[in-house]
Computed example of a mutant assay.
Amino acid sequence: MLAGKFHEMKVERQTPLGYTLMLDGEEFFLHQAEVTHPIEVGETIEVFVYYDAKKRLTATMQEPAVTTEEFGWVEVVDVRKDLGVFVDIGINKNILIAPSDLPIFESLWPQVGDYVYCYLKESQSNYLFAILARPQEFGGVKEEAPQSLHGKKVKARVIRTGKIGTNVITEEGYMGFIHESERREEPRLGEVVEGRVVRVKDNGEFNMSLIPQKEFAIVEDSDIILEYLMGRRGAMPFYDKSEPDDIRRVFKMSKASFKRALGRLMKEGKVYQEDGWTYLKEDTDSNE
């Protein structure tokens, strides 16, 4: 397998469009646009080999961020629902991450401008794909999180999505996990999220929460309920005995959080409950 790797090749001859290179008796073309510094016939140079648009092996002196042997961070430059996600690896051709390597739900696919950590793989059909790294493959950039991180707010990038939870990594290389109970919505792959470190484990990884602490969360949750009520002309078929799954589906919060926020609103005289419904009091000021 030659594609996706660096190779040392001899410059055999120059052509009007570039150079012909030689490796083990086989010729490869180096287009003038792929030359990064002056070279001479007879010189041995290092080039990266990839497939062009016609699936021909071609060489470039540009240095990619990833290879079939090295992981790296690359930027998402295009998202095609019918094809997958294209990333810029640092050469004159964008590389595809196929849907089979992306989250099941398209809403969790990375967006243009997001970064993902991956490596290259050559298919049997003469194509180079980018493959997302699994959490256990971040050894090259992983650092042990200090205990002093506990309780601190951190920003981290999503590296793996899942129903049970979300794997993330900070800019410093600290690996973290967000349990499903510690997020209101599942963040997308490649997204940068900000949350609070709730635990630093003995293995140097940390647990993170995207839900504000109770004293702040209750205010935010109350605003969510009020906004929902106002959008329904002041009435909703939810109250403090509604099913937890229904509450989480609609309000993206636990039943306990919902009850706390609802209790606060009732104590403040903004809402009242009747026959399994919650109603907004007519004199409630939406700007309060």
Score class of each variant (00 low, 15 high):
residue 112 V to N: 03
residue 274 E to D: 13
residue 287 N to L: 15
residue 200 V to Y: 03
residue 104 I to G: 03
residue 185 E to K: 14
residue 124 Q to W: 14
residue 75 E to W: 02
residue 219 V to N: 00
residue 39 I to Q: 00
residue 140 G to I: 13
residue 46 E to R: 15
residue 255 K to P: 02
residue 83 L to A: 15
residue 163 K to H: 14
residue 92 N to G: 13
residue 283 D to H: 11
residue 244 P to L: 13
residue 51 Y to D: 03
residue 113 G to I: 06
residue 163 K to E: 12
residue 133 A to T: 03
residue 232 R to E: 10
residue 69 E to H: 13
residue 264 R to K: 15
residue 109 W to Q: 03
residue 244 P to A: 13
residue 159 I to T: 05
residue 172 E to Q: 13
residue 206 F to P: 01
residue 111 Q to L: 12
residue 180 E to L: 15
residue 116 V to Y: 03
residue 127 Y to V: 07
residue 241 K to M: 05
residue 111 Q to A: 09
residue 105 F to V: 12
residue 201 K to L: 13
residue 258 F to A: 02
residue 78 D to W: 14
residue 168 V to F: 01
residue 9 M to R: 01
residue 61 M to E: 10
residue 55 K to I: 02
residue 210 L to D: 10
residue 3 A to P: 03
residue 175 M to C: 05
residue 140 G to S: 14
residue 209 S to Y: 07
residue 182 E to H: 12
residue 18 G to V: 08
residue 64 P to V: 10
residue 283 D to P: 09
residue 263 G to R: 00
residue 182 E to N: 15
residue 34 E to Y: 06
residue 79 V to R: 01
residue 13 R to F: 03
residue 72 G to L: 08
residue 137 E to M: 11
residue 22 M to L: 15
residue 271 V to N: 07
residue 276 G to S: 07
residue 276 G to M: 10
residue 33 A to D: 13
residue 171 E to V: 13
residue 150 H to T: 10
residue 36 T to V: 14
residue 57 L to Q: 00
residue 110 P to R: 03
residue 112 V to I: 15
residue 48 F to I: 10
residue 226 L to A: 02
residue 279 Y to H: 11
residue 28 F to N: 01
residue 13 R to Q: 11
residue 116 V to M: 06
residue 251 F to A: 08
residue 223 D to E: 00
residue 178 I to W: 06
residue 235 A to T: 10
residue 98 A to T: 11
residue 140 G to D: 12
residue 258 F to T: 01
residue 93 K to G: 04
residue 118 C to M: 10
residue 47 V to P: 04
residue 193 V to M: 11
